[in-house]
């Protein structure tokens, strides 16, 4: 788990560099809540606290949630989210190893369904901001009531995925949309760097043999194939495959979320099916669903199919037919 944290570092740093200190606050709130909640749940369940805390699984969950949340969020959003992830999605199911759904993504989905207004407000990448928001100013935004702040409209915007969807619904073409400032021609100002940083971190994980290549590669392939077909058939209303791969949570999801050893498929063939299904499902949700980003819901939906995937892809035992 330590290597997962290390591999997430480039992504964290790029996020903070591109989107400001709001990310830092998310990380701090999520991590501290997670450790306290994990210790509390372990105590309630009469387990040894030390070995379970030091396996860092709660920290990884919290960090993934923090990186998936909007770049500026009122303090209670990461707090409530982390509680849901640790208490409901993890310990109520029996703790580490027993949870059928990825805890960070359960929390993300709950927050998305419950607080759609707060979950779609993202700070503009710093290169598009007129003047930077300092640490003190961010703290003020996070801990006072964010939505009533007078400057909030000038520093936030929809994410590229959200913007793309809204404008496509207004029957604009991708060519027209692509030239808006937040897209910077490929996948969104700031976003493409963050995605590349996750990609680098993911490659480190594969290189260190912490995760196998099957899930990330097949997930990205699923997304790539689906979006390429659409792009070849109808380029005017379908964003390019590169846009799909480099914006939103595709890279984070492929390398860090879908590969969660507890909730992912375990057989080799199963992992490829699992990854392809998530990629395909993300594309479907992004294109036709009600929410702009589909990775979280796709991971949860495919988590449900994991027992069946494993059942049918179990390798033949030597000597049996």
């Amino acid at each position: 788990m330590l290597w997962v944290l290390i591999a997430l570092l480039p992504g964290c740093i790029t996020m903070i560099w591109q989107f400001g200190y709001g990310v830092l606050f998310n990380i701090i709130i999520c991590l501290s809540t997670a450790v306290v909640a994990e210790a509390w749940m372990l105590k309630l369940r009469g387990r040894n606290i030390k070995p379970f805390i030091s396996d860092l699984s709660a920290v990884v969950t919290a960090l993934l949630l923090a990186l998936a949340l909007p770049t500026i969020a009122p303090w209670w959003l990461p707090f409530v989210g982390t509680l849901i992830a640790i208490v409901i999605a993890k310990h109520l199911y029996g703790g580490l190893g027993y949870n059928p759904f990825n805890p960070a993504m359960v929390a993300f989905a709950v927050l998305m369904v419950s607080f759609p207004k707060n979950m779609t407000v993202w700070v503009l990448p710093s290169s598009l901001l007129a003047n930077d928001i300092g640490l003190a100013e961010t703290a003020q935004l996070v801990f006072s009531s964010l939505s009533s702040s007078p400057i909030i409209d000038s520093i936030t915007a929809a994410t590229p995925l959200d913007e793309m969807k809204t404008r496509l619904n207004l029957s604009q073409t991708t060519d027209e949309i692509r030239h808006a400032a937040i897209f910077s021609n490929i996948a969104g100002e700031g976003w493409q760097w963050v995605s590349l940083a996750y990609l680098a971190g993911g490659c480190l994980l594969i290189g260190k043999k912490v995760i196998s290549w099957h899930i990330p590669v097949s997930l990205l392939a699923g997304l790539f194939i689906a979006s390429s077909i659409a792009y070849l058939v109808e380029p005017s209303i379908s964003p390019s495959p590169l846009f799909h791969l480099l914006s939103g949570g595709a890279m984070l999801g492929a390398f860090f979320i879908a590969t969660d050893p507890v909730t992912a498929a375990t057989t080799l063939k199963g992992r490829i099916i699992y990854g392809l299904l998530i990629g395909l499902m993300s594309y479907i949700i992004r294109t036709w669903g009600g929410y702009p980003e589909g990775i979280a819901f796709a991971v949860l939906l495919i988590n449900m199919t994991v027992p069946m995937i494993d059942q049918y892809t179990r390798p033949r035992v030597y000597g049996h037919k």
Binding site: V80, I88, V110, V113, S114, F115, P116, K117, N118, S145
Partner: peptide, 16 residues
């Protein structure tokens, strides 16, 4: 000024 925890009113909130 409670913003409302929508999930609790939706069906999943009933199950939880």
């Amino acid at each position: 000024d409670y913003e409302g925890f929508l999930l609790a009113i939706l069906p999943p909130g009933a199950f939880i």
